[in-house]
C-alpha cells in the first residue's frame, strides 16, 4: 500500500486553444512528502493543480491521486484530496463553525464526528477563539487559515494548496508556514505551489521547478542548487569561419568536463556562438579559455550564460527578497 504514490502524473498536457498551459508534466509524490511546485506566474502550476483537483480535464496524459485516475473517477479522487485554490471566496454570512460544518457535511463526515473535528481543526489553524464569529469579520490571513482548515475536514490523503501564502503579510505568512509544518509532522502529504522559493525551501522534501508548462528540474532543493552551481553554461563567440568553428567544437568536445556543444548562429554575420555546458569552477573556466587561445582558436567572446532553469531559479529567489523587503 505504501508503494502507491500519492500523486503521479505522466506526460500531463493541458491546451487552451493553441496555447499550452501544461506541456508534459511528470510528477511523483510519495506518502508523507511535502512537494513544492515552484515557478513564475503563468508557469502552469495552477493548471496542474486544478487537474489534480478534478476541476479541469487534461488534454492528454495521465494523472493519478493515490492510484486513482483523476479523469475517470473524479468523485473518488475528491474524497481523497483537500483543495485550496489560489483565488477563492468564503461564505461571509456563515459563522466559522458553520462554515466547517458545511464542508464536513459536503464530504459526508458523520454528524457525531463533525463537532469534535471542527474544534480540532480550529485549534490547528489557530482560530479556536473565533468559533462563533462570522466569516465576514475575519482578516485575510484568518480566512486563508480557515480555508486551509476546510481542506482537512475529511482527513484527506493529499492536500493541494495553491499559493497558500500569497497576499499575506510577513507575519501571517510565518503563521501559515508553522501550520504547514505542523501538518507535515502529522504525516500529511502536501502538494504546495509558490512563485517564491525560500518560502518553501525549509519545508519541502522535494520541489519541481516549472516554467512554460514544463518541469525543468525536480528533486530536493539542495540537489537542485548544487547542480546549478556545478554546471555553468559557457557562451563562446568565435570568428565566423566554418572550418574554424568546426575545429573549435571538436577541440572542446575532447575535454571531459564539456557537455554537448550547441552552435548558435545569429546576430551579426562576423561571429558565431557556441553554447558549452561546462562542469567546473571559475578557475577551470579561466584555464579552458587560456588553453583554447593557446590552441589557436580565435575567441572573440567568452562569458557565462544563465540557463533557463537558473534564470527562473534566480527569479523565484530574487522575488522573495523584494517581497520580504516590502
Amino acid at each position: 500500500m505504501m508503494s502507491v504514490p500519492v500523486v503521479e502524473t505522466r506526460g500531463l498536457i493541458k491546451r487552451y486553444g493553441d496555447q499550452l498551459a501544461v506541456a508534459g508534466v511528470d510528477l511523483l509524490v510519495g506518502p508523507g512528502e511535502i512537494f513544492g511546485l515552484v515557478g513564475p506566474n503563468g508557469a502552469g502550476k495552477t493548471t496542474t493543480m486544478k487537474i489534480l483537483a478534478t476541476l479541469l480535464a487534461p488534454t492528454s496524459g495521465e494523472a493519478y491521486v493515490t492510484g486513482i485516475p483523476v479523469d475517470a473517477d473524479p468523485i473518488e479522487v475528491r474524497r481523497r484530496i483537500g483543495y485550496m485554490p489560489d483565488f477563492y471566496g468564503v461564505y461571509d454570512d456563515l459563522r466559522v463553525w458553520e462554515y466547517l460544518d458545511f464542508f464536513g457535511r459536503c464530504y459526508g463526515v458523520p454528524s457525531n464526528r463533525r463537532a469534535p473535528m471542527i474544534g480540532e481543526l480550529l485549534e490547528i489553524v489557530g482560530l479556536g477563539d473565533r468559533r462563533d464569529a462570522y466569516v465576514e469579520s475575519l482578516s485575510r490571513g484568518m480566512r486563508q487559515r480557515l480555508c486551509l482548515a476546510h481542506t482537512l475536514v475529511h482527513d484527506p490523503a493529499l492536500l493541494i494548496l495553491d499559493e497558500p501564502a500569497s497576499g499575506l503579510d510577513p507575519r501571517a505568512r510565518v503563521e501559515m508556514r508553522e501550520i504547514l509544518r505542523e501538518l507535515r509532522s502529522m504525516g500529511k502529504t502536501i502538494l504546495v505551489s509558490s512563485h517564491i522559493l525560500p518560502e518553501l525551501a525549509e519545508l519541502c522534501t522535494g520541489v519541481a521547478i516549472i516554467d512554460h508548462g514544463r518541469v525543468l528540474r525536480s528533486g530536493s532543493i539542495t540537489d537542485i542548487e548544487r547542480s546549478l552551481r556545478a554546471n555553468a553554461l559557457l557562451r563562446i563567440e568565435l570568428i565566423a569561419n566554418e572550418a574554424a568553428i568546426a575545429a573549435a567544437s571538436d577541440w572542446l568536445a575532447t575535454d571531459p568536463r564539456v557537455g554537448d556543444v550547441l552552435r548558435h548562429d545569429g546576430g551579426s554575420g562576423d561571429t558565431a556562438r557556441l553554447e558549452v555546458p561546462f562542469d567546473g569552477s571559475a578557475d577551470a573556466q579561466a584555464e579552458l579559455l587560456r588553453s583554447m587561445i593557446d590552441a589557436g582558436h580565435r575567441v572573440v567572446g567568452f562569458s557565462q550564460a544563465t540557463s533557463d532553469l537558473e534564470e527562473i531559479f534566480l527569479r523565484v529567489t530574487g522575488q522573495s527578497d523584494e517581497e520580504n523587503a516590502a
Binding site: P85, Y88, F103, C106
Partner: peptide, 13 residues
Amino acid sequence: KQTLDLLISTPMR
C-alpha cells in the same frame, strides 16, 4: 464570489 470551485471540488454530485 469564487466559492463555486470549493463547492465543486467536494464529492457532492
